[in-house]
C-alpha cells in the first residue's frame, strides 16, 4: 500500500470521505451544520485535533504497550481537544459559543480515534499529519456543503449573506432538516460514485 503524499491528502475528499462514504462523526455533522459558517468552523476544529493527535500518536505509538493503547490515545486526543477549547475561548469566543458542547465532544468523534487506530500508529509522523489533513479537509468539505444547503433552504442566505428575503423553510434549520439534507446529499454522492 504505497501512496504518494498528494494521494494521502486527496483520498479523504471523495473516495474515503469520512461523512458520505465512511459514515463517521455523524453527531457533529448533523448538529453543527445550521449554517455554512458553523459547518466550516466545526470542520476546521476537527481538522486541528486530527492533525495534531495523528502526529502525536504516530510519534509515541512504539512506546505504548498494546493492551493500554486505547486509553492512552483517548487521553492524547482529549488533551488536544481541551487545548483547542481554550484557544477558541480566548480568540474566537463567538464561534465557540455557537458550537458549544460539540467542541469537547470531538474527543468521542470516531473519526479521530479511527484514524489513530487505522493509520497513525503504523505510519511516520509526516504521513500521519498528511492523512489527518486529508481526512480533516474531507470532513470540513462535507460539513460546509451540508451547512450551505441547509442555510440556503432554511434561511435564504449563504455564508451569512442573505439573497432571498423572507424566512425560508425553517424546518431545514431545525433538527429534521439535518437528517433530510444529509440523507439526500448521500443519495447524490452515491449516484456520483456509481457513475464513475
Amino acid at each position: 500500500m504505497t501512496m504518494t503524499k498528494l494521494q494521502l491528502i486527496t483520498k479523504g475528499l471523495i473516495k474515503d470521505n469520512p461523512t458520505f462514504v465512511l459514515l463517521l462523526g455523524m453527531c457533529p455533522t448533523l448538529a453543527t451544520t445550521t449554517s455554512a459558517i458553523n459547518g466550516l468552523s466545526m470542520g476546521l476544529a476537527t481538522l486541528f485535533v486530527l492533525v495534531l493527535s495523528n502526529m502525536a500518536i504516530s510519534a509515541i505509538a512504539s512506546l505504548v504497550p498494546d493492551k493500554v493503547h486505547i486509553p492512552v490515545y483517548i487521553v492524547v486526543i482529549a488533551t488536544f481537544v481541551t487545548v483547542l477549547q481554550f484557544l477558541m475561548q480566548a480568540f474566537t469566543p463567538s464561534v465557540y459559543a455557537s458550537l458549544g458542547l460539540f467542541i469537547p465532544l470531538i474527543v468521542v468523534n470516531c473519526i479521530v480515534l479511527g484514524r489513530a487506530e487505522a493509520f497513525a500508529n503504523k505510519h511516520g509522523v509526516i504521513d500521519s499529519a498528511l492523512d489527518g489533513l486529508g481526512v480533516g479537509l474531507g470532513f470540513t468539505l462535507s460539513l460546509t456543503v451540508i451547512g450551505l444547503v441547509r442555510e440556503i433552504l432554511g434561511s435564504g442566505s449563504a455564508f451569512g449573506f442573505k439573497f432571498i428575503s423572507g424566512d425560508g423553510m425553517l424546518a431545514f434549520v431545525m433538527a429534521p432538516g439535518a437528517f433530510l439534507v444529509l440523507g439526500y446529499l448521500m443519495v447524490l454522492f452515491n449516484k456520483y460514485l456509481a457513475k464513475k
Binding site: A61, S62, L63, V64, P65, D66, K67, V68, H69, P71, V72, V75, V76, A78, T79, V83, N121, K122
Partner: peptide, 24 residues
C-alpha cells in the same frame, strides 16, 4: 509492534501519559 504489555509497562505508560497531558 509495541512495548510488551506487562503490568509495570502498562502502569508506567498510563501514568506518564496522564502526567504529561495534565502538565500540557
Amino acid at each position: 509492534m509495541a512495548v510488551k504489555s506487562t503490568l509495570t509497562s502498562m502502569v508506567v505508560c498510563l501514568t506518564a501519559t496522564c502526567l504529561i497531558c495534565s502538565a500540557i
